[in-house]
Design a protein around this nucleic acid. Structure first.
Lengths: 146, 146
DNA sequence: ATATAACATAAACCTAACTTTAGGTCAAGT
DNA sequence: ACTTGACCTAAAGTTAGGTTTATGTTATAT
């Protein structure tokens, strides 16, 4: 059992954010003692799920729906599973996108390292050519494909 | 040489977004013919960099700064390199975060698949135990660590 | 010539996710 | 009793990144 201040420190989240989440219905089972919120294991696990679903791109209002489904019990297992499957797919695609972004950044790092050495990017303008290291060439084409 | 409508289709970006980017100073070298924007290879490559830097978490105003540096020539190679190095590190960390998120989602998928089979999550509440498949256990601990 | 499609601007509007403000309550220590 | 720190609410404010609206201009096809 934790106070809002303790949870704030545990998750490195401002107290105002936790109150905002509660207001948005993200802790539908939270209890209070003379007005003060008591965060139990339920809310702690909820917060882990909130962080996960947020990073997977889900909006607050859809996380609220999920939290409501949790109250419904076994009747919503299918819906909850489908949500996690959808977010899993989203994140898998997101990671593939980020690998491409990373390859573009690797190429640009190489580009400016070379420009700095050469004192000019004039030679680099005639790329891609055989002077490009194999790894950089791969990163370049990966990041520019489709 | 392309019109705004052609670029919009090429990048699957609304025309309004391209005009907004221009207004924010993301195409400092763009030319016009009787008021109409002409997108050349410079702006096409700029757009690729914009998408990359945006996905790496950079704000529009910082992308604007970068575009200004590009005009300065060799004097800004160092700064440009440092920016790409910083964003590369950011994205590498971001991908690691996303792997954790993915592991949480994998665990939750397994959890609800099992709950559906069992018709109840009662047995799952006593986890982690030896009934958890090795792969799921790994995902669970990875996503809950630190 | 004229219709229409694609371009232009400035300014207002929008949304999500918070954050801040102003004012008040509660619990613990001195 | 009283101060202090941690909690509370409702409502207004903030920020980023666009989008929409209203109005006007330019290019192209018939």
């Amino acid at each position: 059992m934790y106070t809002i201040g303790e949870v704030s420190k545990m998750f490195h989240l401002p107290i105002s954010t936790l109150r905002y989440y509660d207001q948005q219905g993200l802790f539908p089972m939270i209890t209070r003692k003379s007005g003060i919120r008591i965060f139990s294991d339920t809310e702690i696990e909820a917060l882990r799920v909130i962080e996960c679903l947020k990073k997977s791109g889900l909006e607050i209002k859809d996380i609220k729906s999920f939290m409501q489904w949790c109250i419904e019990g076994a009747a919503s297992y299918q819906r909850r599973l489908e949500l996690f499957q959808k977010q899993k797919k989203t994140v898998e695609e997101e990671i593939i996108q980020m690998q491409k972004v990373l390859d573009m950044l690797k190429f640009k790092c190489w580009y400016y390292e070379t420009a700095l050495k050469d004192g000019s990017e004039k030679n680099l303008k005639f790329l891609p050519n055989d002077l490009m290291p194999a790894e950089i060439k791969k990163a370049y084409f990966h990041s520019h494909e489709k």
